[in-house]
């Protein structure tokens, strides 16, 4: 029993790593029983995963506890304009006399909620189209694939800009809709390819024999096995959403009265923050978008590495070799 297990373990990874892995797996025999625990452990051993997850958690916590961090209103224009960071204003003030720190934490709230809702919506649409298209096949697949490819090829940002300019009011709802509409196609394509590869696997065949409905097979049998791909897709969609959202707001196509990272940058740029040297106004939102995006990207790579052993960096394996 035990030898069989180790052979299986070795087969999953590259051959030269197998002696190490045999070692590891015998050592951790007791914990091997719960596969979830093993995944969690591997997750915390991955540097990218830990850094990525910490960055994302940081911003989410910031968004949740925003009112606890500052008692100043983000919209109040009652302070001295263009003050450098100080005790009273940790990130200084804008040229209109607003507190930048307060704008930043409340802006985090708004930016993150739009990004997460839009990202989740995008993923759901990708899943629906991609999985149905890949599983059903035939004419339905041809049509859905055509639609997907058309959406994939029509340039996103110009379309988003024109839509935002034409549509009645560019509030958060419009923003979410526009992001979903222009962002779903890539994910649908990836998920379709994966489900095509999975639909003839024995467990799917047996579910079919058992008379399960199509939706039940796709969403209850196959979907759990594609979790990592869907999760990666969600992360990617949230990155797309943050960048699109902030880009549009920076161009002045969002709700200019709202407080979020994009409009902060819009006002900073319009009011010449850089020219007057007010880096404390211009840097935080840009850096935040970058760090949040980098966090998501790192987590994405980590998921990739954890599920595809070929991509695991060799230096880490070497280190493990030395350790054992």
């Amino acid at each position: 029993m035990q030898t069989e297990l180790t052979v299986q373990e070795g087969a999953n990874v590259q051959p030269e790593a197998s002696p190490v892995l045999t070692n590891v797996s015998t050592r951790t025999q007791g914990r091997r029983k719960n596969p979830l625990l093993g995944t969690v452990r591997r997750f915390f051993q991955n540097k990218k995963a830990v850094v990525g997850a910490s960055l994302i958690t940081l911003f989410i916590v910031l968004a949740i506890i925003a009112p606890l961090l500052t008692h100043l209103s983000p919209n109040a224009t009652s302070f001295l304009p263009l003050q450098a960071p100080s005790g009273a204003h940790p990130l200084g003030t804008t040229s209109l006399g607003q507190d930048v720190f307060s704008q930043f934490v409340f802006g985090t709230r708004e930016t993150l909620s739009v990004a997460i809702i839009a990202g989740a919506g995008t993923t759901v649409l990708s899943m629906l189209v991609g999985m149905v298209s890949g599983y059903v096949g035939g004419l339905m697949d041809e049509v859905l694939q055509l639609v997907t490819n058309v959406f994939l090829i029509i340039p996103g940002l110009p379309l988003v800009i024109v839509l935002a300019a034409v549509l009645p009011k560019s509030g958060d709802f419009t923003m979410v809709m526009v992001i979903i509409l222009t962002g779903w196609a890539w994910g649908a394509r990836v998920l379709r390819a994966q489900i095509m590869a999975m639909r003839s696997l024995p467990y799917v065949e047996s579910a079919k024999m058992g008379g399960e409905s199509m939706f039940s097979i796709v969403f209850r049998e196959i979907m759990p096995n594609m979790f990592s791909l869907i999760f990666a897709n969600l992360l990617f969609s949230i990155i797309y959403a943050v960048l699109t959202e902030s880009g549009l707001q920076f161009l002045g196509l969002g709700d200019l009265k709202a407080v979020n990272w994009g409009t902060m940058l819009y006002w900073a740029d319009t009011e010449g923050a850089l020219l007057s040297g007010a880096w404390w106004w211009f840097v935080p939102p840009g850096l935040a978008i970058a760090l949040f995006g980098a966090g998501l990207a790192l987590l994405n790579y980590a998921v990739d590495e954890l599920t595809n052993p070929k991509l695991r960096s060799q230096s880490r394996r070497r280190r493990r070799l030395q350790r054992s």
């Binding site: 920076f250 850089l274 020219l275 978008i289 760090l291 995006g293 990207a297």
Partner: peptide
């Protein structure tokens, strides 16, 4: 390059311009 790619493009461009 991944880190650079994570920055919002317009922001990096503005900083470079400045």
């Amino acid at each position: 390059f991944t880190l650079l790619g994570a920055f919002p493009y317009f922001w990096l461009a503005l900083v470079a311009l400045y």
